Amino acid sequence: MTKDFYQAVEGRRSYYAINNEKVVSEERIEEVINHAVKHTPYAFNATSGRVVVLFDEQHQAVWDIAKDELSKIVPAEDFAVTEERIDGFAAGYGTVLFFEDQDVVKGLQEQMELYKDNFPIWSDQASGMLQYVVWTSLELEGLGASLQHYNPLIDEQIREKWDIPQNWLLRAQMPFGKPASPAGEKEFQPLEERVKFFK
């Protein structure tokens, strides 16, 4: 049954327990990601978003890098909890890496000096929108995902492993797979404390 937009927004959750059972084809995931990248809005149509999608062993490599880097800074007596969390992400079958092309941002700063302080902010906002569109799209395909931020800890290793251009700034990582257990209960702050209407 196809979900409508509101159901998709509500259904998108953080899934930390995922597995590598393939719910949809890699080709379908490519279609979904391409659609999201093409249609997510950017200020001044900057299109500075860059995405790398990794499957199977390539996906595993991201979390091997994260685990290795974290082992250097997390005390040994506390590492078991960290390792368990990372292994949970690695249990899926794919990871989306989100980047922002800093050359695009700098180029716009040079072209429109009046707005130069805003372009990095707008870049981050657009990246957040792209992450959300991808996340919700994966949920619509029956996949569970979560948004992670191990940058800048893993930036250099990611850049070297997949020959990522220097001007691509890593913003987030999104491991995905088949949900292995339900997402946790979600609590909501009262809307009247968050939203105002004036008529």
Rank of each mutant, 00 (worst) to 15 (best):
S123D: 04
F79M: 11
I65T: 09
A36I: 00
K72E: 11
R159S: 10
F55T: 12
K161V: 07
N151T: 10
F119E: 05
E160G: 08
G49N: 09
S71Y: 06
G177I: 02
L170A: 05
N151S: 12
V51T: 12
L170P: 03
N151H: 13
K22C: 00
L54Y: 11
Q111H: 01
I73W: 01
P165K: 00
E193V: 02
T2R: 12
L169E: 12
E156H: 01
P152E: 11
E192H: 14
T40C: 13
F198T: 09
I18N: 03
I86H: 04
V23M: 04
L97N: 10
Q157R: 11
I73V: 15
A172C: 05
A46N: 08
G144M: 01
Q125R: 12
F55A: 10
K178E: 07
N167S: 14
I18Q: 02
R28H: 08
Q125D: 02
P152G: 03
L191W: 13
N167D: 11
R159L: 02
I18D: 01
V24I: 14
K199P: 00
V105T: 15
D68R: 14
M174E: 11
P175F: 08
M129K: 06
M129C: 01
Q102C: 06
L70D: 05
L114N: 12
N45Y: 07
K38A: 13
S127G: 13
W135C: 02
M174G: 10
F44S: 15
V74C: 02
N34S: 14
L70Y: 11
F119A: 09
S25C: 07
G184H: 11
F44I: 11
E84S: 13
E113L: 09
T2S: 10
H39S: 06
A145C: 09
T47Y: 13
P179K: 10
L97Q: 07
Y150W: 12
I164C: 07
V37M: 09
K3F: 13
Q189N: 06
L170I: 05
V105L: 03
G88P: 03
L169Y: 04
D4P: 02
M1F: 09
V195Q: 03
F89W: 05
I154E: 07
L70M: 15
R13A: 11
N20E: 07
E141T: 02
K72G: 08
E84N: 13
K161Y: 01
A90L: 09
E31W: 00
F89L: 04
V104L: 00
F44K: 15
Q109V: 10
D163S: 14
E192W: 05
K199M: 03
R159Q: 11
Q109F: 04
A61H: 14
E69K: 15
K72H: 13
L170K: 06
D124P: 00
G94K: 09
A91C: 09
E193K: 14
F79S: 09
L108M: 13
E185T: 15
M174K: 05
R12C: 04
V52P: 03
S137N: 03
I154T: 06
A61N: 15
Y150M: 05
E110Q: 06
T136L: 07
N34I: 09
M1V: 10
M174C: 12
V24T: 08
A36T: 03
K161L: 03
D155F: 04
N45Q: 12
Q60I: 14
P175G: 04
E141R: 00
N167W: 00
E156D: 13
V62W: 00
E139V: 00
L153C: 01
Q102A: 12
W162D: 08
I65V: 07
T2H: 07
G88F: 01
L54G: 11
S181D: 06
